[in-house]
Amino acid sequence: MSYERLEQCPICGKEEFKNFLVVNDNAVSKESFVIVECENCSFKFTNPRPDTESIGKYYESEEYISHSNTKSGIINRAYHVVRSITTKQKVELINRHSPAKGAILDFGCGTGVFLAACKKDGWNLRGIEPNAGARDVASKETGEPIATDLGEVAGEKFAVITLWHVLEHIHTLNDTVEKLISLLQEDGTLIIAVPNADSHDAQQYKADWAAYDVPRHLYHFTQDTMKRLLKKHKMKLEETLPMKFDAYYVSMLSEKQKEGKTKMISSVLNGYKSNSYAEKNGNDYSSLIFVAKRK
């Protein structure tokens, strides 16, 4: 097992960090990982972390739903019910920002559920998924070939590029964002959804907050640090939208992580509290969607 330590903040480039939190990987390895915070821009990231050759073993779990589509257990069954609703909302979002439709690239498309909905709605599809098992499922789901990396779509142009809870997993953060922007049409739209480390549920659960998900999540964004990243890459933030269901789902996972069992009533109450807090306090929902275009 090989680890790498970042010596510079991926957003501002400064070299002064402080330890923010020690979090356990309860899903796979049971190891502990440190999340550090940049003293200059407050960006939080897992450091040190497994390198690109070693990270794969931390995804080897049947419970990793974006790769397996499992319906085992009450949490995953709830996930599937909610996903049918949120998939429709995602298609409505891309249609609002690109009514002419055209070509869409879903980077980290998992098992292809979102792309299949886009195809049904009249979009031309491209998907990228590095996990072989998920890629096979996505190809069957969409009826389209799914690429393994950005090299396979080089030179193509897209009206919309989406990353649904993917950017936090990418080792080469800035290089990947730069390449994705280069694939956008001149008036194209970049849509990024990530967990929000400033949310009420993150503050409540602290090290047990399931959306830290170390070491699979390498970065832990907030509204401010995402704005800084987009500005760095000369992108204009058009709007920031909540993913309200995530507060309940993450609370369910966090309760199970904290208490060793699923506690539905506590999860629902804490999810509701998190959304209520966000509605009154600056949009800090459990997960956020950032919609950006070129300046």
Results as ranks from 00 to 15, higher is better:
43 F>R: 00
45 F>V: 01
42 S>H: 09
55 I>F: 05
27 A>L: 11
41 C>L: 03
50 P>M: 02
37 E>I: 00
55 I>T: 04
34 V>L: 15
84 S>P: 00
30 K>T: 05
65 I>Q: 08
70 T>D: 07
50 P>D: 02
68 S>N: 13
75 I>T: 09
36 V>N: 01
29 S>L: 05
41 C>V: 01
50 P>F: 03
74 I>D: 12
79 Y>Q: 13
64 Y>T: 01
36 V>H: 02
77 R>D: 04
45 F>T: 03
29 S>K: 00
56 G>S: 14
44 K>G: 02
60 E>D: 15
24 N>Q: 12
73 G>N: 11
72 S>G: 08
80 H>L: 05
60 E>F: 11
46 T>A: 06
25 D>L: 03
81 V>P: 01
68 S>F: 07
49 R>A: 14
65 I>F: 13
66 S>T: 12
79 Y>L: 12
83 R>W: 04
55 I>M: 13
52 T>P: 00
24 N>Y: 03
24 N>R: 13
65 I>W: 11
72 S>Y: 13
41 C>T: 02
84 S>W: 08
65 I>D: 08
34 V>A: 14
69 N>L: 10
76 N>Y: 14
65 I>C: 07
71 K>W: 03
67 H>D: 05
79 Y>S: 12
80 H>A: 11
84 S>F: 05
36 V>E: 04
79 Y>G: 11
52 T>S: 14
78 A>N: 06
25 D>P: 01
47 N>A: 08
51 D>A: 04
45 F>K: 02
29 S>Y: 01
64 Y>V: 03
45 F>M: 07
53 E>M: 06
68 S>V: 08
28 V>R: 06
52 T>E: 14
43 F>W: 02
59 Y>K: 14
57 K>Q: 15
48 P>C: 13
31 E>A: 08
50 P>H: 02
24 N>L: 06
38 C>I: 01
67 H>W: 10
39 E>W: 02
26 N>T: 12
49 R>T: 06
30 K>F: 09
28 V>A: 06
31 E>Y: 03
82 V>F: 11
73 G>K: 15
42 S>W: 00
66 S>D: 04
66 S>L: 09
50 P>R: 05
38 C>G: 00
76 N>K: 13
25 D>R: 03
71 K>T: 12
53 E>W: 04
48 P>D: 14
26 N>W: 12
66 S>G: 08
57 K>Y: 10
58 Y>G: 00
42 S>N: 07
33 F>A: 10
31 E>Q: 14
45 F>L: 11
41 C>K: 03
69 N>P: 01
